[in-house]
């Protein structure tokens, strides 16, 4: 029996049909489905797919103009490398949304919109194999694209992608979800439908993502009216740092050699080569410009209904 490729199979070696993440540098990753006869063209050279098949995951390979690493896809790597079709939810928000939904294997989750499928993948991987993701979008090109990806990534059996405007028509399933996630411009319109889609006997969780505070204000009112409790809005602001080595010059050294171009040795006043000063490893905020806001996450609980 041949096994279909899947993000959820953890074989040691790469097979044809597997999706791999070709890692060039921290900022440069390309996801590719391995297929005999094809060649990956990158900034740093070409790589024939034949050469990838059979290699270990995580192995270093030579492209024509440098090394690359072939990585096993994870939720985070997929988010960072996927083709951007629309606004994207990054790992920090995805992680938080999964947690606020109390998502785990077996959970039934409704999502709207599908968007780039970044969060859809994160949810599908988390609720598999016994749970299910229903993802909704008004744009058919998005749902069919994510459906195709789910197929390639072995996640079809745990996902259903639906073209649907949840703000007017509600969700694909009713009385069955453990959690609903909303990333729509007018969440307040979708919230009464979200309440309907949640399992009455188990209750469930609602999470709404909105960039603007005015959306949050209306969403909070709508949640309270729809019977949600423990309503809370949070905002995450991640900060990325890198490690650099830093001088610890004495004042004497500074007087002698200055602070410019610290990587080079300098000649002092007598023309002698002066040693580099002591250095320590230290963390600095990098890059200097970073995302400082993505959106507010408003979350709430729908309690089980008393029969």
């Amino acid at each position: 029996m041949t096994v279909e490729p899947s993000f959820m199979l953890y074989e040691e070696r790469i097979r044809e049909g597997d999706t791999v993440i070709v890692y060039v540098t921290y900022g440069q990753m390309v996801p590719t489905v391995v297929k005999r006869g094809q060649t990956l063209m990158m900034k740093y050279g070409a790589l024939r797919h034949e050469f990838i098949i059979g290699k270990k995951w995580g192995q270093r390979l030579s492209a024509t103009a440098g090394y690359v690493y072939i990585l096993r896809p994870t939720s985070d790597l997929w988010t960072r490398s996927l083709p951007r079709r629309t606004q994207i939810l990054y790992t920090a928000d995805c992680a938080q949304i999964l947690s606020l939904l109390d998502a785990k294997p077996g959970s039934v989750i409704c999502e709207s919109g599908t968007g780039s499928g970044s969060l859809s993948h994160a949810i599908a991987l988390t609720v598999a194999p016994s749970g299910h993701l229903y993802t909704h979008d008004i744009d058919e090109t998005r749902t069919s694209k994510v459906q195709e990806e789910f197929q390639t990534h072995g996640l079809s059996s745990v996902t259903t992608a639906v073209v649907r405007n949840v703000c007017t028509s509600g969700f694909h399933v009713e009385n069955s979800a453990d959690g609903v996630f909303l990333d729509v411009p007018a969440p307040w319109e979708a919230i009464p439908f979200a309440a309907k889609s949640i399992s009455r006997v188990r209750g469930g969780r609602l999470v709404s993502f909105s960039p603007c505070l005015e959306q949050v204000q209306r969403a909070c009112l709508a949640m309270a009216s729809a019977g949600f409790v423990s309503i809370e809005t949070i905002e995450l602001v991640p900060e990325q740092k890198k490690i650099v080595t830093q001088h610890r010059q004495s004042l004497e050294e500074f007087e002698e050699i200055g602070d410019a171009y610290p990587k080079e040795r300098k000649r002092n006043a007598d023309g002698e080569l002066v040693e580099n000063t002591e250095r320590v490893s230290t963390a600095i905020v990098y890059p200097y410009s970073q995302p400082t806001h993505t959106g507010y996450l408003t979350h709430a609980t729908l309690l089980p209904v008393l029969e």
Binding site: A92, L213, V216, T233, P238, E239, K241, I243, T282
Partner: peptide
Amino acid sequence: VSAYDWLAKRQTINLVLTDQMCRVMQV
């Protein structure tokens, strides 16, 4: 920072140090 140095010496890739602020809004 020390662990970062240790891992960097062993060619660990995709190394990143993050910190995040999490604030609750009163709405």
